[in-house]
Computed example of a mutant assay.
Amino acid sequence: MDHSSIEAAERETFEEIGYRIDLSNERPFFAINFEEGFDDYYLVEREIDIESLTLQYEEVQKVK
């Protein structure tokens, strides 16, 4: 199944810290291209209550 980098970033943000983010109006801050693909990097700033986050311990130990 093929997913856009926006869909993947939104999904992973929710899975790893429990925050639903809408990146539909964002563009990648930068991209790295490889012979067989690419990585998009999104840098976004949001005011959120970090106490309300649910961290996936295997992936994230700390947020600030």
Rank of each mutant, 00 (worst) to 15 (best):
24 S>K: 15
20 R>Q: 11
61 Q>H: 10
52 S>R: 14
15 E>T: 04
7 E>P: 04
43 L>H: 12
49 D>T: 08
41 Y>K: 09
57 Y>E: 14
37 G>N: 06
37 G>Q: 11
47 E>R: 10
62 K>D: 13
60 V>F: 00
21 I>P: 00
54 T>V: 11
23 L>V: 06
64 K>H: 07
34 F>N: 01
53 L>T: 07
26 E>Q: 15
30 F>N: 08
16 E>S: 04
52 S>V: 06
10 E>S: 03
8 A>Y: 04
9 A>C: 09
26 E>N: 14
48 I>Q: 02
29 F>H: 13
46 R>L: 07
14 F>L: 08
41 Y>E: 08
9 A>P: 01
56 Q>C: 10
42 Y>V: 13
15 E>D: 11
20 R>M: 07
54 T>D: 09
1 M>A: 10
52 S>N: 11
34 F>M: 11
16 E>Q: 13
36 E>V: 12
46 R>I: 04
35 E>M: 08
6 I>L: 07
24 S>V: 08
14 F>V: 01
53 L>V: 07
12 E>Q: 15
30 F>G: 04
30 F>C: 13
27 R>I: 08
61 Q>C: 10
33 N>Y: 08
25 N>H: 14
50 I>D: 03
51 E>S: 13
16 E>G: 02
49 D>M: 00
48 I>K: 00
3 H>R: 15
18 G>E: 03
26 E>K: 12
21 I>E: 00
32 I>N: 02
58 E>A: 08
11 R>L: 13
55 L>C: 01
55 L>P: 00
47 E>W: 02
13 T>D: 00
4 S>Y: 08
60 V>T: 02
50 I>N: 00
24 S>W: 07
5 S>K: 11
10 E>V: 03
57 Y>W: 10
58 E>I: 09
44 V>F: 06
42 Y>T: 10
8 A>F: 11
63 V>K: 03
13 T>M: 05
41 Y>G: 00
13 T>R: 00
59 E>W: 06
53 L>A: 02
46 R>S: 01
7 E>F: 12
8 A>K: 15
5 S>A: 15
63 V>L: 03
28 P>L: 14
36 E>C: 08
49 D>G: 02
15 E>A: 14
48 I>E: 01
58 E>W: 02
36 E>H: 11
40 D>L: 04
34 F>H: 05
52 S>G: 03
28 P>C: 15
45 E>H: 10
49 D>E: 08
5 S>E: 11
29 F>M: 12
54 T>Y: 03
49 D>P: 04
28 P>R: 13
52 S>M: 05
59 E>H: 06
44 V>N: 01
21 I>Q: 01
39 D>H: 13
17 I>M: 02
8 A>H: 12
13 T>S: 05
5 S>G: 07
64 K>C: 03
57 Y>L: 13
20 R>K: 14
37 G>D: 05
33 N>C: 03
35 E>I: 05
61 Q>V: 09
6 I>K: 12
22 D>Q: 05
45 E>M: 11
8 A>M: 15
39 D>G: 02
42 Y>F: 15
42 Y>Q: 04
6 I>F: 03
42 Y>R: 07
15 E>R: 13
53 L>E: 05
7 E>T: 10
20 R>A: 09
10 E>M: 10
35 E>D: 07
10 E>H: 10
35 E>V: 08
57 Y>R: 15
59 E>M: 12
58 E>P: 01
61 Q>P: 00
26 E>I: 10
